[in-house]
């Protein structure tokens, strides 16, 4: 019974800490209400832009690599959903990391009696991200409607599990990007790399060929993150193995990110006096 109670008290403790952090974030966001709303507008605009991009392309063609217009809309919505969920929970925290290291503020985090990785990962919650994720789900729903698809309960459950796996891949990847580059890259640099990398998640995997496809399927699974859940809903999965592959790669990336985190922490020397 001993380890079991240790786990539950641990969970309860970290749950309480997370709630405190969440409350803190809400208070902070509400201090800048207009800014909060403007960010939602910005994200909505970029989402509309991504959709507009494909609408323009589909005005010149019937299908891209076997994907019809509404199927791609469903794919873009899924990619956006995953990305926004990631933004809500992790993005600012992970990209702030290089700043914490540069200014030496990480010292303070290391001294607190909490797991440091937990703290730096969950410090701030970006509430706008949840709003945008909701918007993305609406687009997914609308696309389903246009395609005449009514997903079963199993499909919906599987869809959300795969999306959450996608969020974790985002998290692990960006953490690796942030810790491995903190000597030279400013936080804006990391955000830039991130947006470029995840840009391709919304494209149909079947359009790609060669080395590019292999790298971004197996090593950096950008072409799986949104494609697999979207294909599950569209009942277009070639085999159940695709879902397994996504989950396995998620695990590998999480382990890798923990490894990178530990190595870089060992190399950390404080910057302030």
């Amino acid at each position: 019974m001993q380890p079991f109670t240790a786990i539950t008290t641990g969970l309860r403790r970290y749950g309480a800490i997370y709630l405190a952090l969440l409350k803190n974030s809400i208070v902070r966001e509400m201090g800048f209400k207009s800014n909060f709303l403007l960010w939602i507008v910005v994200e909505a605009l970029w989402f509309a832009l991504q959709l507009g991009y494909f609408v323009v392309i589909y005005s010149h063609t019937e299908s891209i690599a076997g994907w019809s217009k509404w199927e791609v809309v469903l794919l873009i919505g899924t990619a956006q959903f995953i990305q926004q969920l990631f933004t809500a929970i992790f993005l600012t925290n992970v990209t702030d990391l290089s700043e914490l290291i540069r200014t030496g503020k990480l010292d303070f985090m290391l001294l607190l009696p909490v797991n440091t990785r937990f703290l730096i990962s969950f410090r701030k919650v970006d509430l706008g991200g949840f709003v945008n994720a909701g918007m993305a789900l609406c687009v997914v729903g609308y696309a389903c409607n246009q395609l005449g698809i009514t997903p079963t309960f199993q499909h919906i459950t599987g869809y959300f599990v795969l999306c959450i796996a996608g969020v974790f891949i985002h998290y692990a990847l960006v953490l690796v990007l942030a810790v491995s580059a903190f000597w030279t890259v400013r936080s804006q640099g990391v955000v830039w790399c991130y947006y470029n990398l995840f840009n391709i998640a919304r494209m149909p995997q079947t359009a790609f060929r060669g080395t590019f496809k292999i790298i971004f399927t197996l090593a950096v699974p950008m072409l799986l993150i949104a494609n697999v859940p979207a294909k599950l809903i569209l009942t277009r999965l070639d085999s159940i193995l695709e879902m397994g592959l996504l989950l396995v790669i998620t695990m590998i990336w999480l382990i890798l990110s923990e490894f990178c985190w530990r190595v870089s922490l060992r190399r950390y020397t404080s910057a302030s006096s």
Binding site: I64, I200, M203, A207
Partner: peptide, 14 residues
């Protein structure tokens, strides 16, 4: 270059 390459692939598919 990553999204750029991806865009070229997309057009090739079109």
């Amino acid at each position: 270059l990553i999204p750029l390459t991806a865009t070229i692939f997309l057009w090739k598919a079109v």
